[in-house]
Amino acid sequence: MGLEARLKKRLKHFDLDVSLACEAGRLLAIVGPSGAGKTTIIRLIAGLEKPDEGEVTLRGEVWTDTAARVDLPTRKRGIGYVFQEFTLFPNLSVYKNVTFAARDRERAEDLLKMFDIWSLRDSRPHLISGGERQRCAICQALARDPGVLLMDEPFSALDALSRRKLRDLVKSLKGELHIPVIHVTHDIREALYLADDIMPVARGRVENKWILQFMIARKERERDLCRSPRPGLEDDEDEIELSIKMKEYMR
């Protein structure tokens, strides 16, 4: 059993009402347009926001149960959370950021080496690049040996090259983590590349129709772009893999 959640919350423009499950060792991508309620879902799972109604359990341990008035504080949930924007502690070096809440210092040092930021360990966050900062943030989240990893558009503030590198690193790492990983993104390509399961969300609901519409719109846009130079698109190999996955998903 991994992470299970059923969440209802009244938001400003719509009501959020979703259920999800993610097994250990798998990556669930919550994908949808901006303002769909994706970030709210993982904030509710983390306990950073309270649902109006619902339950969150990890391996049978109840974190939230509104009916039974159970609400485990965020700090006791043992989660790793990578925020969309950089949230490293500016007064600490990269090393101290990663070991800040680490249960095992050796594990933290291994992560620094694995994520190729060992040489930056004495630098302050503002002196390193966006990609390096986000690698450091992932190390920080993993260093406390979390029971679940939640990532909120962790690559959205990065340039294309850094995004690609970090995406590959996460993909290679996810099998070794043996915990549920939930990845929020608005980028369907990223979701298809990384995820074992995809949960399309629109206006607070799981909305499969939306992903089909998105794919059609994207195909149309690509067709238009093919007529002109293709700024921003990545290499063909990636495109081929994406197309295969799209077909698989649509089947």
């Binding site: 983390a46 950073l48 504080p73 965020t74 700090r75 006791k76 043992g78 989660i79 790793g80 959370y81 925020f83 924007e85 949230t87 502690f89 500016p90 007064n91 800040f100 809440a101 920080q140 989240a141 406390r144």
Partner: peptide, 25 residues
């Protein structure tokens, strides 16, 4: 505020957040 949220996620108590995050920054 996300620094404080990050500290919460990393398991810090409100007192530890005050001493280790809020005061030094």
């Amino acid at each position: 505020p996300r620094l404080v949220e990050n500290a919460q996620v990393l398991g810090l108590t409100p007192t530890a957040i005050f001493l280790r995050v809020v005061l030094p920054n």
